[in-house]
Every structure is written in structure tokens, then in C-alpha cells.
Design a protein around this nucleic acid. Structure first.
Length: 824
DNA sequence: GATTGCGCGATTTTT
DNA sequence: TCGCGCAATC
């Protein structure tokens, strides 16, 4: 027997060695699911299956990366790099990148993240003269998202009786129109949102038999992780792909289905057995992760859900400690308790920060934990906050790159058209947008043909300068890689320089972020270049001979013409394996699909804070589950139906089963919400916990806390002296350690608070006549202080001076408004 | 164009 | 309570 099979238990081995035909693995929490998947891939390859015929789909990039790494380790060579392992979204994005022209999108289509989608929706809603207070972009977005995930297009949406009824009831009958307009706009912009990556992929396979044929034969073996979280589109796609070989292996756990709000349906698991004859079902029930105690309460809680696939999770692990259930007065105290306990556990049981995780239901709950950890000087990192790529300065630079790659991307174009300021004001943009809509051309085209549309001479020149610059960048695309282009953009647009000259700490942080972005682009390019050298297989090589003999109907476009390879659009660039293409377009599509959990520099020794959703698939030695209270967990939004409540319970199950050795469950009597203290009942889930496995306690100062005096825990008092704040012995030099240790936690860069450098104007400050101001003159500004005029621009009736201030960096000053005193 | 000050809505979960 | 969008100033 092969070495890698020896470490498996019986059912695991059964799953791994079942090579051909449909296979469903019901894998309980901590039952070695990833091990089975990776070993199975290795086993396939050991049995002569080519790596490039294997497709493995996951939900997170992290899971994909881990899988790839582990396969590589088992195989001991780099063959694994030709495997096709990735998230649904990233794999489909890649395929769409090659095939998009068939459905009228450019190869370099833009991927809109949630912010982009909402922004487009907002525009569309306003254009339809709807009130965006009532048609809130995120509500509308959710609705559209659900439709897409349920394979409901705009036309069907508008005509479906029940859907329309729902929209009537919520008093938003025009969502159908918004959906329609939004789709048109995305198409016009050459952009797909997250849901489109799935929906368009499905449409592609449905409408183009030769495409279906190609990928059906490429992906001879398909594996799907977290199958319980797949939605209707994902289900349809994988069903189509697997239809020929039927070598499809799905892994799931109905007890961990927590994404129904995103359209996921456990039904897919039950349906699987009906879809194929002869489905082999394997149950993995031995848990290797958690102690007996932890498993006991997990099992006990989940029992309260109806309609599950029967299974009994068991373990050979020792009992371990009892689960600790802790009540505190407030959320702040809860935070303090957790931080104290982490500190104590580190000392007592020799844990590192990285052994701990704090899990919660909603992101907002991170605040109190954060504060306490910071006070104690414990390094932590929050997963799921604002992603690096959502920072303004990053989005700005990326917007340039997006426009260069895809000029149809109006969102990005509007973002940069006047940034940095180049004199293309609101009026000009509005005018251009109106023309674009009237003529049914893109905004970019309006700019390119500005001369035809009667812009004033000055404006025309500025517009032409702008388009010339963008086209100059475009000319680099063919010869330069993503990094080189990005650097050029940074230079020529003065974007980097502008941030660099801003000496405020805020500006500095922005500058550093831009540098970090450039570095990461470089890293990405280098990485792919290295990989490409060892790749044997080309992925989407477009030279697969298409012999559409079997699929019955020929594909026909709107005009009835068969749309095949090599139509009007140029051939997509050749991508090779997992490495290869280092173009800017390829880079942009990748990063939109990254979440901040993915760029995990978090190998550092930090306590991890995240939502339970984000924690799925992970494990930690010590887990704290916070805020286990009614209205919060279960969420007030999810107590109306049994289905919703059961999903919350599964979520609780997921939370509990993340823990390997120790588990604390905490809840507060009251917590701050919208600024005021709100009372909460303990969660109903707590009543479901078996008393004999629980160690209940109460942490906090009781009456003293009610009187509002903040005592903190015993541990905290011990470390900062006695009593409350008033008993502090402050020295004038202000060293009050360690309560406010300066040790910087190693979480990701947080933009420092802006530090306005105030200037006190000279006593004799009088605004000078600046109509003849020249570069080289010294001036004083009431707020920014002294500075040197470095440049004069703008028109005669609206002059703009660029002033380099001594302390506040470079600013553009509009002389019509600002008062300047000429010093010399 | 950029900054400041005010009023109001916000909290489910994510690729 | 806090952060954001919008209107009023420089």
C-alpha cells in the first residue's frame, strides 16, 4: 500500500481510493476532510490521471492554497502546480477571461466588488428617478444578488408573479427595472460583479456547446469542497461540467451549512444522490480535532435541528477541560475578561497569541475585544475589516489600471478623470455622461471624440491630454508586465509624488500603502514568472480541437449565426497553468477576488478575531465565542422561521467545533448599541448546553460596575495597581505601564488619526492681491502656514496655485477663494 | 477643489 | 456613539 494511504482510517481510505464515478463524502467537523481531499488528488495522480484534468473548487482562496500546498507535499514534486484548484469565483473568472468575447464582454472585463456594484446601482437608481433613500443600493443589491444566484435573469425577474408580489409588499416595485438597467450598465462597462462570475459561466456552458464540450473534457475529475454551501448556479455549473465523465466528488457537512443568505441550499446535498446512479456515500465521523467535552456540547446543540443527515461524531481524544460559560455585565467587560484570560492562559499553559481565536456573530462586536487587547499589549489581528484593496488611495491607483485595461469601465474612469486635479470639473463630466447616454457610446469614447461634441477649447485640450496619457499607458500593455505598467502610472500621473509630498502622518500612511501595493504587484508578477517556467500544461490554450459531435443543438447568437472560435474578437491571450500570464488585466481580475483573510501575513504571533463565518474551516487551540445573546446570536433577523433559527444553530455549531483544546463561551447582560446600553437575554442556545460539561461563572465587578466605576478584573488590577483610575500614581513623565503599553500590535496597518498641523497666522496677516502671483514666491496661508509657490495653472478667471508648505506638504490652492499673504 | 460642520441612519453573515 | 453624505465656507 502506498505510504500516503497508511495514515488514513477506514472510511477515509474508502473515499480516497474511490476513483471513478460519483462520490459524496459527508464529513463531520474536524474529521480530516482536507486530508481526504488532498490525498485523493494525490492518489488520482498516482493512478495516471494528469494534473491538468483535475478540478477542485473551494469557497475561499485560503482553502485552495492549503489544498494545493498539501498535495504538493504528498507528491514531493511540482506536478501539483498544474492542478486546477481555486475558488468557484476565481476559476470561473479565469475561464471567462478566455471566453468572454463570446458573450460580448472583453477578455479584460472588470470585476466589480461590492462597493463598485453599489456605486453603479446608485447611479442607475438616480437615473431612473427613484429615491435612493428608499431604494437603498445595498438592499437592491442583495435582491439582485439573490436573483442571480437563483438563475433568475432580469426578464424573468420582471415577469415572475411571486417575485413581483414580494417587491410590491416591500414597496419597491421598480427593482425589476433597476435590475434590468444595472445589467445593461454592467455590460456597457464591460464589467461583471461577483454573482456574474457564476451566472455568466453558467450561461456560457448552457449556450455554447463547444465551450461545454471543451471543459467537460478538460476537467475529467471534479472535486467540490463545502458542498453544503453551494447555490443553484454553482450546482448547475458543476452538474454540466461533470455530465460526461461523472467523476464528481463532493464533500460536505449539512450541519455546517451557514450560507443560505447567499443562496446556498442544503438541498444540493440531497439532490446529489438523485442526480447520479450509483452514488458512493462515505461518512467521516471520527473527529481528530477537539476534546470529548467540546464535541459533546457540539453534538448536543446540533441535535435540536430537525432534518439532518444522521451521523455520530466521535473522538478518541481525551475529555479535556470543561467548557467555560461566562457572563459579564457589559460588552466592554466581556472584552476585558477575554483579554485577561488570554494573558492568563499564555502564562499558565504556555500558549502563544496565535493559539487563540475570538469569534463573534457580527463584525461590530470586534470593538470591545480590540480595545481590551490593545490595552493589555496583546498583538491581534482582525479578519474581515476593510480590505487593503478598498482603501481610497489603493482604489485610485487601481482605477487607473482598470481604465487602461478596459476603457469601458465607467466607474473607474469617473474616479480618476479628475484625480489628481486636472481641471475636468463636475459640469464637464456631467455633460460627457449625458452625451454618452444619448449617443449610446461609452464615456471614454465621448472623451476620445470630444472635438465633435462642442466642448470649449480649453476643456478640449485637457480632455485630449488625459486620453493621450491613458493611451500612452495602453501602449505599454503589450510589452510590459503588470508591475512595470503600474509603476509608470504612478510616476506619470503624479499620484505617488502627490502622496509623497504630503507630510502629514495620514499622507505618509497612504504613501506607504501605495508602495505596498506596488510591492505586492511585483511579488505577484515574479511568482508567476517562476511558476511558468516549470509548468508543462497550458490551461486555456485555445488550441483544443472542437468536435461538437455530441451536444445536440448548435449555438446560435442573436442573429442566428453560429458563434465559434475566432469571431470578431481577437484570440484571448494564452494562459499557462497556474502561472504564466503576467499582464495587468490578469492581475486586476485576481485581486478583486481576494479578501483580507487571504493575504495572510498572519503567520505572525497574533490573536485572531473574526466572524464565525470567516472561521469556517479553521481550527484553534483556544476559542472564545462572544456575545452569545438573544437578538445577537441568534440574530434578531433570524428568529422568525425555523429554517433561519436552525441556520443560526448550525453557526453556533461551527463556532464551537473550531476549538481544539479549550473553549469559552461568553455573553453580556447588556451591551452598547448605537451609543446606549441595551439589555440582552442570554441566548436560547445556552439552554441547550448539557450542564454536566459546563463550568459556569460570572466575571466582573457586579455592583461596583453598576455604579459605573470601572474596576476591571483581578488580573488587570493586579497589573496596573489597585483600585480605580483615581488611585493611579501618575508621574509627570507619564509612564503608566503596562495598561497602555506602547507595544504595537502587529495587525495590519491602520491609518493613523489625521494630525492637522495648525498654523497660527501672523499678527499682521492681511490677504494680498494674488492676481499676479508667480511661481517662486513665498506665501502664507491662514491654516497651512508658510510655503513656496511651485506652479501656477488654471485659467485667468480661475487661477490655481500649487504651494509647497513647510509643514503641511503640497496643496493646490484656488486663488479665487483662499486668502494668501504674499511674503516675498 | 478642499475643508469643516451638521444631521441622520446604522448592525447579520461574504466571494 | 460613530461615520458618512451633504451643504456651506475658504
Amino acid at each position: 500500500m502506498q505510504e500516503y494511504l497508511k495514515g488514513l482510517n477506514e472510511p477515509q481510505r474508502e473515499a480516497v481510493t474511490h476513483l471513478n464515478g460519483p462520490l459524496m463524502i459527508i464529513a463531520g467537523a474536524g474529521s480530516g476532510k482536507t486530508k481526504v481531499l488532498t490525498t485523493r488528488i494525490a492518489h488520482l495522480m498516482a493512478n495516471g490521471v494528469d494534473a491538468f484534468n483535475i478540478l477542485a473548487l473551494t469557497f475561499t482562496n485560503k482553502a485552495a492554497a492549503e489544498m494545493k500546498e498539501r498535495v504538493e507535499k504528498i507528491l514531493g514534486n511540482t506536478e501539483a502546480r498544474s492542478l486546477y484548484i481555486g475558488t468557484f469565483h476565481s476559476v470561473f473568472a479565469r475561464i471567462l477571461r478566455a471566453e468572454a468575447p463570446r458573450i460580448g464582454f472583453p477578455n479584460n472585463f472588470t470585476i466589480y466588488d461590492t462597493d463598485d456594484s453599489r456605486s453603479v446601482l446608485k447611479t442607475v437608481i438616480n437615473e431612473l428617478n427613484l429615491d435612493d433613500k428608499h431604494y437603498k443600493p445595498n438592499i437592491v443589491h442583495n435582491r439582485i444578488s439573490q436573483a442571480k444566484n437563483g438563475l433568475v435573469g432580469p426578464a424573468e425577474y420582471a415577469t415572475d408573479y411571486y417575485i413581483q408580489q414580494e417587491d410590491m409588499r416591500s414597496n419597491r416595485p421598480a427593482i425589476a427595472q433597476v435590475y434590468q438597467a444595472y445589467s445593461v450598465r454592467c455590460f456597457k462597462n464591460g464589467a461583471m460583479d461577483f454573482d456574474d462570475l457564476l451566472l455568466k459561466m453558467y450561461e456560457l456552458l448552457r449556450d455554447f456547446p463547444e465551450v461545454l464540450y471543451k471543459y467537460q473534457h478538460k476537467f475529467k475529475y471534479i472535486m467540490i469542497d463545502e458542498y453544503q454551501d453551494t447555490n443553484a448556479v454553482q450546482y448547475q455549473i458543476t452538474k454540466l461540467l461533470a455530465a460526461v465523465h461523472e467523476n464528481i466528488c463532493v464533500v460536505g457537512d449539512d450541519a455546517q451549512s451557514i450560507y443560505s443568505f447567499r443562496g446556498a441550499t442544503i438541498e444540493n446535498i440531497f439532490q446529489f444522490q438523485k442526480d447520479y446512479d450509483d452514488v458512493k456515500v462515505v461518512k467521516l465521523e471520527q473527529n481528530y480535532r477537539s476534546t470529548q467535552s467540546i464535541l459533546n456540547i457540539a453534538n448536543e446543540v446540533i441535535k435540536n435541528n430537525k432534518g439532518q443527515i444522521p451521523k455520530a461524531l466521535w473522538t478518541e481524544n481525551e475529555n479535556g477541560e470543561k467548557i467555560r460559560l461566562v457572563r459579564t455585565m457589559t460588552d466592554n467587560e466581556e472584552g476585558r475578561f477575554v483579554a485577561d484570560t488570554i494573558q492568563e492562559q499564555k502564562l499558565r499553559n504556555h500558549y502563544y497569541n496565535k493559539d487563540f481565536a475570538i469569534l463573534y456573530r457580527t463584525n461590530a462586536q470586534s470593538r470591545s475585544f480590540e480595545e481590551s487587547l490593545r490595552k493589555m499589549g496583546i498583538a491581534y489581528r482582525i479578519y474581515g475589516g476593510v480590505s487593503f484593496y478598498q482603501r481610497k488611495e489603493i482604489k485610485d491607483l487601481l482605477a487607473y489600471l482598470r481604465v487602461i485595461v478596459n476603457t469601458r469601465d465607467e466607474e473607474a474612469l469617473k474616479r480618476i478623470i479628475n484625480y489628481p486635479v486636472r481641471g475636468i470639473g463636475k459640469t464637464t463630466i456631467e455633460k460627457a455622461v449625458i452625451i454618452a447616454n444619448e449617443q449610446n457610446i461609452t464615456l471614454w469614447e465621448v472623451l476620445m471624440r470630444a472635438a465633435e461634441f462642442g466642448f470649449k477649447a480649453g476643456t478640449l485640450e485637457i480632455l485630449q491630454n488625459f486620453t493621450t496619457m491613458i493611451r500612452y499607458f495602453q501602449s505599454m500593455l503589450k510589452t510590459k508586465n503588470a508591475y512595470d505598467v503600474a509603476v509608470q502610472v504612478g510616476k506619470h500621473t503624479n499620484l505617488v509624488k502627490e502622496l509623497f509630498s504630503d507630510k502629514t502622518s495620514e499622507g505618509l500612511a497612504r504613501y506607504e500603502n501605495i508602495q505596498e501595493l506596488l510591492n505586492s504587484i511585483k511579488e505577484w508578477v515574479d511568482d508567476r514568472v517562476n511558476r511558468a517556467q516549470i509548468d508543462e500544461d497550458g490551461f486555456i490554450t485555445n488550441d483544443i480541437t472542437i468536435t461538437p459531435s455530441s451536444p445536440a443543438s448548435q449555438p446560435a447568437g442573436d442573429d442566428g449565426v453560429i458563434t465559434g472560435e475566432g469571431g470578431l474578437t481577437p484570440s484571448p491571450p494564452v494562459e499557462r497553468g497556474q502561472g504564466g500570464e503576467v499582464s495587468l488585466g490578469s492581475y486586476l481580475q485576481q485581486i478583486t477576488l481576494l479578501t483580507d483573510a487571504d493575504e495572510d501575513k498572519g503567520n505572525g504571533d497574533v490573536v485572531k478575531l473574526m466572524t464565525i463565518h470567516a472561521a469556517k474551516g479553521l481550527e484553534f487551540s483556544v476559542v472564545f465565542v462572544g456575545g452569545v445573546e438573544e437578538t445577537l446570536f441568534p440574530s434578531a433577523m433570524s428568529i422568525n422561521t425555523r429554517e433561519e433559527l436552525e441556520e443560526e444553530r448550525r453557526l453556533f455549531y461551527v463556532a464551537v467545533t473550531r476549538a481544539k483544546a479549550r473553549l469559552w463561551i461568553t455573553y453580556a447582560n447588556a451591551r452598547y448599541r448605537f451609543g446606549s446600553l441595551v439589555q440582552n437575554e442570554p441566548s436560547r442556545f445556552l439552554e441547550e448546553l448539557p450542564a454536566e460539561h459546563i463550568d459556569k461563572s460570572y466575571a466582573g465587578g457586579g455592583a461596583r460596575n453598576q455604579s459605573g466605576v470601572n474596576m476591571g478584573s483581578a488580573f488587570e488590577r493586579m497589573h496596573r495597581g489597585f483600585g480605580n483610575e483615581s488611585n493611579y500614581q501618575y508621574s509627570d513623565t507619564g509612564s503608566k505601564k503596562p495598561a497602555t503599553s506602547n507595544q504595537k500590535p502587529s495587525y495590519l496597518p491602520v491609518a493613523p488619526k489625521p494630525q492637522p498641523v495648525n498654523h497660527i497666522p501672523s499678527a499682521d496677516f492681511v490677504a494680498s492681491d494674488t492676481s499676479n502671483l508667480q511661481a517662486g514666491q513665498k506665501v502664507e496661508h491662514q491654516k497651512f502656514g508658510f510655503g513656496l509657490v511651485t506652479k501656477m495653472e488654471g485659467s485667468a478667471h480661475n487661477p490655481i496655485a500649487t504651494v509647497k508648505f513647510d509643514v503641511n506638504g503640497e496643496k493646490k490652492i484656488m486663488l479665487n477663494y483662499a486668502k494668501l499673504r504674499i511674503v516675498e
